[in-house]
Simulated scan of single mutants.
Amino acid sequence: MTPVSNKAAKAAVRRELLAARALLSYEDAAEAAAVLAGRALDLPELAAARTVAGYVSVGREPGTRVLLDALHARGVRVLLPVLLADNDLDWAAYEGADRLLKAGRGLLEPDGPRLGPDAVLAADVVLLPGLAVDGHGMRLGRGGGSYDRVLARLARAGAAPALAVLLYDDEVVTRVPAEPHDHPVRAVVTPGGVRRFDRPEPGV
């Protein structure tokens, strides 16, 4: 596929996946979030991590809040993204659900001091939001480009955190359209289990 057709293919797949998520009840999403947290906490990378870059799930995204609370209670330093005007990400420490503020685009962000975009370089694990992962570990994001910047920043710095994504079971697919800047992840966590990918993240 050409880059243009890849972009069009990504947009079509995103629409399909978002439509499927919209059919989930909030009860089903909450139940999946609890299972996802247990699966993710079994990851050796998370068990050994001192700093984890995560995100606050919203709507019917695979839930992260149970996982964030479990990591925080464990004494892990959890960094959460703060969306900047140019779609890049700043970071702030997670200090509990009562310290989250409503932000633009329906997001929730921590109310603490901003640590700068380079704060993510300290992460041992980066949890990436996504809509799908294929059999090669290639992730399909939502298309905003924020995490492309994060991954590029990690690559430039020679940082090597484990990259993982939380999804629903049917979002692990045969293939997602990929572009040259896309990075594979090390693991995908679903309510049904964990799938790992042997190929290392390029440049990360």
Score class of each variant (00 low, 15 high):
T2D: 01
V4Q: 11
K7S: 11
A9E: 04
A9V: 03
V13P: 01
R15P: 03
E16T: 10
A20R: 15
A22W: 08
L23A: 14
S25H: 02
D28E: 15
D28S: 11
A29L: 00
A30S: 14
A34G: 13
A34Y: 03
A34R: 13
A34W: 08
L36T: 02
L36C: 05
G38F: 02
A40L: 11
A40D: 11
L41A: 05
D42A: 15
A48M: 14
V56Y: 11
V56F: 10
V58A: 11
G59H: 07
E61G: 12
P62I: 08
R65E: 14
V66T: 14
D69K: 01
L71N: 09
H72L: 06
H72C: 02
H72T: 03
A73N: 13
R74P: 04
V76P: 08
V76H: 10
R77C: 04
R77T: 13
R77A: 05
L79P: 13
L80G: 14
L80T: 08
P81W: 13
L83P: 09
L84I: 02
D86T: 12
N87T: 15
D90V: 00
D90M: 00
A92G: 03
A92W: 01
Y94Q: 04
E95M: 02
A97T: 04
A97V: 03
D98R: 07
D98C: 00
L100N: 03
K102C: 05
G104N: 11
R105Q: 10
L108M: 14
P110H: 06
P110C: 06
D111N: 11
P113M: 01
L115Q: 02
A119N: 03
A123L: 09
A123V: 06
A123T: 09
P129V: 05
A132Y: 14
D134K: 10
G135D: 09
H136C: 12
H136S: 13
L140W: 14
R142W: 15
S146C: 13
Y147Q: 08
D148T: 09
R149K: 13
V150A: 01
R153E: 01
R153N: 01
R153S: 02
A157Q: 08
G158N: 06
A159W: 03
A160I: 00
A160C: 10
L163A: 04
L163D: 06
L166V: 01
D170E: 10
V173D: 02
H181N: 06
H183I: 07
P184F: 11
A187I: 05
V188G: 04
V189K: 05
G192E: 03
G192T: 07
V194D: 00
V204A: 00
